[in-house]
Each structure stands twice: as structure tokens, then as C-alpha cells.
Amino acid sequence: MTPATIEGPRLILRPWRQEDLEPLFAINGDPESMRYFASVMTRAESDAWAARLKAHFAEHGWGFWVVEERGGAPFVGVVGLMNIPWTARFTPAVEIGWRIAPAFRRRGHAEEAARMALGYGFGTLRLPEIVAFTVPANAPSWRLMERLGMTPDGSFGHPRLPADHPLHEHVLYRLVASRG
């Protein structure tokens, strides 16, 4: 399936290229960027995650896009939609997520790219709902979820983390398509 590209006035959400692996690892290997995740990733783990994201694109034609500034930086981060591969009270579901490189944070890139991805999810894909989740301490992420119009729907224990892990508990947000 041909991967979708989404173009906005300032950003382009595009499929993956080989040269994206190094800047992705710069995020995934950075302790500050990964403080709300179970651990930083090694280069091999980061590359394996990118391979899973690319495989999702190959199967569906959409997923976590690379965010590029139009006429600027070729890699700002990744933002997109993904079928959740594990089971929880709200699955099956499509999640929206983001990881933005430190140099590009607090510039509105995550929100702008997320709005583009949501538009694609609700418009082109006609999804009935999109979810997002994070740990309660990740205020920048759940505040972005709220700015996107998502509403909180309680919490859940992440099934890929042990119950005694400090990041086991996650908050869930939902956004339902407006059809009209």
C-alpha cells in the first residue's frame, strides 16, 4: 500500500527514509526525551521500533509519520496514528502519539502535526474514535491531548509494564469523530 503524505502550510508528515533512523535514535536514546517511557532505547531497539512503524505503513498506508518542516528541518520528530497491538479495556483502538526532538519542542510542532494526523484519521480513514495515553506525570502530553479536544477517560495499567513499575499507571484520553 502506498504510504500517505500529509502536507500543511508549515509541516509535512511523510513516510520514513533510511536517513531518519539517526535522528530518531537521538530522541529514543535521550534520557530526558524518554523520561516517561520504561527506558531509553539502544540504537538496535530504536531501529526495531522504526521497522515496526514502517511495517504498519506497509500494511495500512498510514501510521507514525516523520514530521518535516516545509523548507526547513528534514526531521522534527514523529507524529501519527497506530493500531494498538496489545489488549486493554479500550482496545481494539487507534492511538495518536508523538515524539518531538528537543530542539523543536515548544514551537507548536506536536500540536500542528497531531491536528494533521487527526484530520487524516477522521477524514480519510473515517475512524469513529482515536485515543491517546500517557503517564499522569507527563503533563505536557496530556495537556496537548486536552488542547486537541480529547477528554479524559480514567486510567489503566499498561499491559506491557509490570504492575509494580513506576510508569505502569496511564491516563487515557479519547476523541470521538464529529459527523455532521
Rank of each mutant, 00 (worst) to 15 (best):
I130S: 12
R174V: 10
G71K: 06
G80W: 05
V40T: 15
L161Q: 02
A117N: 09
A113P: 09
A48I: 00
L172D: 00
R52C: 09
S39Y: 03
H168L: 01
H158R: 03
G149N: 01
G97Y: 09
R99C: 05
E19P: 05
L118K: 06
A110L: 02
S46R: 08
P74Q: 04
F37I: 10
T42K: 07
R99E: 13
S33W: 04
R160C: 11
D20C: 04
E19T: 13
P140T: 04
G97E: 11
S141T: 13
R17S: 08
A137P: 02
A73F: 01
P159K: 01
R89G: 14
R115N: 11
A93E: 03
R14L: 08
L118M: 04
R143S: 13
W98E: 00
T124H: 13
D30G: 06
G154Y: 04
P15D: 04
Q18L: 13
A101K: 07
D153W: 09
W142I: 09
G77T: 03
M82G: 10
A88L: 05
W142Q: 03
R99I: 00
E69L: 14
L11C: 08
Q18T: 14
A177M: 08
G121Q: 02
Y36E: 01
W86Y: 15
A44S: 15
L53S: 12
L53N: 10
F122H: 03
W142H: 15
S155Y: 11
S178C: 09
G80M: 02
P140V: 07
W98G: 00
P128E: 13
L21W: 02
M1V: 12
S141H: 05
R147M: 07
R174S: 09
E111M: 00
A55L: 09
L53A: 13
E111K: 04
R43A: 10
G108L: 01
E45N: 01
V171E: 03
E32Q: 12
E129G: 05
L144R: 12
T42D: 02
L21V: 01
L161N: 03
T124R: 15
M116I: 07
G149V: 09
P9E: 15
M82E: 14
A26N: 10
R106V: 05
A117Y: 07
G8E: 03
W65F: 10
H170Q: 14
R70T: 11
V94Q: 00
W65S: 04
P74I: 02
I96E: 00
H158V: 04
E59Q: 15
W16S: 02
P166S: 08
Y36Q: 07
Y120P: 06
P166R: 04
E22K: 15
P74C: 02
A132D: 00
P92S: 10
A38G: 12
S155P: 01
G77N: 05
R179W: 08
L21E: 11
R143K: 14
G8S: 12
G8I: 06
R70A: 12
E19C: 10
A101E: 04
T5M: 05
V176M: 09
Y120M: 01
R89C: 02
S155W: 15
E68S: 12
T151E: 14
A58Q: 14
E146G: 09
G123E: 11
S46G: 13
R160P: 01
R105V: 01
E146C: 10
M116R: 07
G77Y: 02
M34F: 11
V78G: 04
W62F: 15
